[in-house]
Design a protein around this nucleic acid. Structure first.
Length: 271
DNA sequence: AACTTAGGCAACCGCTTTAAA
DNA sequence: CTTTAAAGCGGTTGCCTAAGT
C-alpha cells in the first residue's frame, strides 16, 4: 500500500556509503512485481545469505540491504498475511511488556509475522490502545503514576523494557554452559555465537515485583514459581532454556485462556 | 465534488554486533 | 589483536488511501 518516495538515486553509493565509480545507480522505492519475482526465484535457488552480493548475482539494481528487507518482510514463503488476530495482539502486548521494543524477538514468537509488521502495528494501533486505557505504551504503567515513571526515558520514542536495569553497566554475559540458543529461528539476532540470549537475559534482569506492580499476575507468578529472577543485585539468573520456556508459557497461558473461553462459550458457560 | 487531515504501512537510514581476514 | 566486511536491528520517513469537512 504505502509507497516510497520516488527513487532519489543518491548518486552512486553502495549501501555502506562507499563510492562506486561505474556501477549503475541503485534503484530505490517500491518493488515491482518483476523484481519480486527475480528475487524470490534467486533466493529459492541459491538460498538466503550473502545479501551484499546477491543483487549483482541476481541481476537486481538494488542494494543488498533492500533485497534482504524485501525478502524478510514480504517475500518469504512463511509470511503470514492478514490482520493481526486478537490472540496475537494479546501476545504482542505481553511480550512487549517484558522485552520492550525488541521487535525481532517479539516477532520470533509470532510465527509468520515480521518485526517490521509488529513494529508498525504497535506504533499505529497498540500504543494508542494503551494510551486510551491510561497506560504508558513504553512502560505499560499507568500514565498517572508519575513517580515510578521517572526511570523511564521520555525523550525518545524508544524505551528500554520495563525490565531494564537502572544505570550500571550491563551484567557480564551469563556464559551459558552450552550454547543452546544458537540458530533458534526466524530472527537471527540471537543466533550467531557470542550474543546468545544475552539481550534476553538483560531484558529479564528484573525481579518479579516489577510485574506485580502493574498487575500482570501471569508474569509475576511464573517468575516466582520458577525462580526466574534473582532479586539479589537484580542480576538475571536465567538461562536460554528457561527464558524460552518462559516466553512459551506466555503463549500457552494465552492459549489455555482462549481455549477455556471457547469451551465456556460453546457450552453456554456451563460445566 | 473538492480539499484537508490522519492513519497505515513499506522502505530506507544509521548504528551495533558479529564474523572473517 | 586489529581491521574490515557483512548482517541485523530499531527508528524514521514519506507515500497512499480513507475519512472528515
Amino acid at each position: 500500500m504505502a509507497r516510497r518516495k520516488p527513487p532519489a538515486q543518491h548518486g552512486a553509493r553502495s549501501e555502506d556509503g562507499q563510492a562506486q565509480a561505474t556501477a549503475p545507480p541503485l534503484k530505490r522505492g517500491p518493488w515491482t512485481a518483476e523484481e519480486d519475482e527475480v528475487l524470490a526465484r534467486f533466493v529459492a535457488r541459491e538460498g538466503e545469505g550473502r545479501w551484499r552480493t546477491l543483487p549483482r548475482r541476481a541481476g537486481l539494481l538494488r542494494c543488498g540491504k533492500s533485497c534482504r528487507l524485501r525478502w524478510m518482510n514480504y517475500l518469504r514463503p512463511d509470511i503470514k498475511r492478514g490482520p493481526i488476530a486478537e490472540d496475537e495482539e494479546d501476545l504482542i502486548l505481553r511480550l512487549h511488556r517484558v522485552l520492550g521494543n525488541r521487535w525481532s524477538l517479539i516477532a520470533g514468537r509470532l510465527p509468520g509475522r515480521t518485526d517490521n509488521e509488529i513494529k508498525n502495528y504497535w506504533n499505529s494501533h497498540l500504543s494508542k490502545k494503551l494510551i486510551a486505557q491510561g497506560l504508558d505504551p513504553r512502560t505499560h504503567m499507568p500514565l498517572a503514576a508519575a513517580p515510578g515513571r521517572a526511570a523511564a526515558p521520555t525523550d525518545k520514542t524508544t524505551w528500554a523494557p520495563t525490565v531494564r536495569p537502572p544505570q550500571p553497566p550491563p551484567p557480564p554475559p551469563p556464559v551459558p554452559p552450552t550454547s543452546s540458543a544458537a540458530g533458534t529461528g526466524c530472527d537471527g539476532r540471537d543466533s550467531p555465537a557470542g550474543g546468545g540470549n544475552d539481550d534476553l537475559a538483560a531484558a529479564m534482569s528484573v525481579d518479579a515485583h516489577d510485574f506485580e506492580g502493574f498487575g500482570d499476575q501471569l508474569l509475576a507468578d511464573y517468575a516466582a514459581s520458577r525462580g526466574v529472577f534473582n532479586d539479589v543485585m537484580g542480576s538475571p539468573m536465567v538461562d536460554d532454556d528457561t527464558f524460552s520456556s518462559f516466553l512459551d508459557s506466555l503463549m500457552n497461558e494465552r492459549q489455555l485462556a482462549a481455549d477455556h473461553k471457547g469451551v465456556m462459550n460453546d457450552q453456554g458457560g456451563a460445566i
